[in-house]
């Protein structure tokens, strides 16, 4: 194809310009050494106690309009039942591999087998687990793994009920990135509160295109 030829010479030209601009070609060894020399004097480990970290997470999630309930393992199903009822959710999408003991009776759970987006648009909500949560920023991290599923399923429905285990809560962003490093190539979404915008007069308005309602059950 003609395009390929053009971009091939474009590639050579852009790289040539870069090398000319810097006066040389970079190599892996120099890059590794230079990267290692970056000063990282910011906080990279947690400084607070577990209880304080969990309280912080709850506070920060609530600050951005998520609803949070803490529960013991054995109570997840009951708490979920209550939250789904309050949201009037009767038909929920769930990813493959979500713990069945979390799912209450009386609600229809549809397992996401590549459900078309238009169909996702018609369910009442989605229920998932999470890979981890970051207390300091009030963030829940989802990945395309069992129990969390593909990205579209947590996006198109208007309501997201997310179960987070306390052992998956970290205090800071660097701790989170450290834990995610091994699965860095997976599709990953950081969710901090329900969809929002600040585009009108710089005021945070809840609810635009993603789920307008986000409930979290913090387990353990």
């Amino acid at each position: 194809m003609a395009t390929e030829l053009v971009t091939d010479s474009a590639r050579a030209e852009v790289l040539r310009r870069i090398r000319a601009a810097k006066g040389g070609t970079a190599n892996a060894e120099a890059a590794r050494a230079g990267w290692g020399a970056v000063e990282r004097r910011y906080r990279r480990e947690s400084t607070r106690s577990r209880d304080v970290i969990l309280e912080l997470l709850v506070d920060r999630l609530q600050d951005y309009d998520a609803r949070v309930v803490r529960a013991l393992h054995i109570d997840v199903r009951a708490v979920a039942a209550r939250m789904l009822e309050e949201r009037k959710a009767k038909r929920m999408v769930v990813p493959r591999g979500l713990a069945s003991e979390w799912l209450p009776d009386g609600v229809e759970f549809v397992v996401d087998e590549e459900i078309p987006a238009a169909e996702l648009d018609r369910v009442d909500g989605v229920m998932t687990g999470a890979t981890l949560a970051i207390a300091e920023t009030g963030t829940v991290v989802l990945q395309n793994v069992a129990g969390q599923g593909r990205r579209a399923a947590t996006l198109v429905p208007d309501y997201h009920l997310c179960v987070v285990r306390v052992e998956d809560v970290v205090e800071t962003v660097p701790e989170a990135m450290g834990r995610l490093q091994a699965t860095a190539e997976l599709a990953t979404t950081f969710v901090s509160g329900p969809s929002a915008t600040a585009d009108i007069e710089m005021t945070r308005i809840k609810g635009v295109h993603g789920p307008r309602f986000l409930d979290i059950i913090l387990v353990g």
Partner: peptide, 29 residues
């Protein structure tokens, strides 16, 4: 590197919209 996001994802949202973290961050490969 991926790890560099631990710096940039702290700096960007706080500087841009004054939020601790923006509502959605997508990373994929």
């Amino acid at each position: 590197r991926y790890q560099d996001l631990e710096v940039l994802l702290q700096l960007l949202p706080r500087s841009a919209t004054g939020e601790r973290m923006n509502p959605y961050t997508s990373i994929w490969t």
